[in-house]
Computed example of a mutant assay.
Amino acid sequence: MSNLKVVLVGLGNFGSGWYRRLRRHPGVQAVCVVEANAQLRETIDSETPFYSTLKEAIISEHPDIVINVTPPHVHTAINEIAFEHGLPVLCEKPISDDIMDAQYIVGQAELKNIPFMISENYRFFAPVLKVKELLDSGTIGHLSSAHIEFDRYHVVPVPYFNRMANGLLEDVAIHHFDMIRYFTGQEAVKVFAVNSNPPGSWTETTTIHLSAWMELDGGTIVDYHGSMMAKGKVTEWYGDWRFEGAEGAIVLTSNRVQLIKEGKADEVYTFDGVGNVLSIDEFLAALKEKREPRPSGRDYLKSQILVHAAAVSSRDGKMVSVEDVLKK
């Protein structure tokens, strides 16, 4: 599939960036927009078709795909409408703000055999792709552990963030938890997590500090530290990573990938000025090649279940089994 007509649903904080991206993308022939807030029409080109509901846009424009950039609590309703019309969907993460809804909508996509991808853009950053290549090649041998640090002082202006029970975990660390699965090719078996707020936190309605430990099914141990109240060190949004293996280590920090063997740096890869693949590129390629997009809703559901398990662990104050957490 090429030169597609796209309906973009949502013109908020992320939607405006998506609009500009789609307008200049060579694989997109035309874009129409759905947005409930009519005032946002002034933020796009006047010739772009603008609708208040997705059903109206589908009937009038006959689009080929749907890009869902609405707030998380709206995702399910929009995805359902798209599926009712047989339209492939690229949806911003998470699948839904409710784990049961997430399971339901993934099931609907599979039942109706409709391509459904989550826009997990962290997987497509150039340094991340390089680390994945090194890990898959076995250059550091059997992977024993992974250590992740994410540190930023970041006040989130988006209203839905402060409505979350655990903002950092659900809105930011979900990227990192997905990267754990992506990098290692392993699934978490056990997780222990603590969500909290440090003194002087800029929010009182959600939590923006997270410590987590997990055991993966391949035996790899992972420890994670994340903060949106950091006053010192500042990491990239994808964080700083250190992978320890039987034959060496890999360190990812600030657009720099370092391979360490026999106690010394063997190679260093830098990525300043290197472009990243876009999630829309992967989605369009998957449609053209008639394959499952990466990550599909089915795959990303496992990342969201891991986040849910961490939230349950923090709430209950104990380690939990990821497999058993949805049975309760």
Rank of each mutant, 00 (worst) to 15 (best):
G167S: 06
L11T: 00
V156D: 08
G138D: 14
G263I: 04
V128N: 12
G27A: 08
A212P: 15
G27P: 00
M214E: 05
S16N: 10
V66A: 13
D281M: 06
G317L: 08
F271W: 13
V128F: 12
S119H: 07
L326I: 15
T253K: 04
G10K: 01
A246W: 02
V322N: 02
A310N: 05
R294N: 01
N3C: 06
S279M: 04
G218Y: 07
I67K: 03
S96R: 01
I140Y: 03
P127S: 05
G17D: 14
I280S: 00
L8N: 04
L143H: 05
L8F: 07
P199L: 08
Y104H: 12
K264P: 12
S313V: 10
I118K: 03
M229H: 08
L134T: 03
G138H: 04
F150P: 03
T48G: 05
H75G: 15
V74C: 09
I58D: 00
P115Q: 09
T184F: 05
S314V: 07
F243S: 02
N276V: 12
S279T: 03
L287N: 02
S296F: 04
H73A: 13
I260W: 01
I44H: 09
P115R: 09
I250E: 09
V191Q: 01
E262V: 04
Q304L: 11
V322R: 01
K112N: 11
E42W: 12
I180Q: 02
N195S: 15
V33E: 03
E61Q: 15
R123S: 05
P295N: 12
I58F: 10
G107W: 08
Y300K: 11
E110G: 07
A173S: 15
V33N: 02
K261A: 07
V277S: 05
D151P: 00
T139H: 04
V156A: 06
L4Y: 05
A165N: 07
N79G: 03
S137D: 12
H308Y: 09
S52N: 13
W213C: 14
S303N: 03
V31W: 00
L259M: 11
G200W: 08
V268S: 02
E204Y: 14
P199C: 04
Q39D: 15
K302S: 10
V6K: 09
K132L: 14
R152I: 00
F124N: 10
P198Q: 07
F271P: 14
A212E: 06
I280T: 07
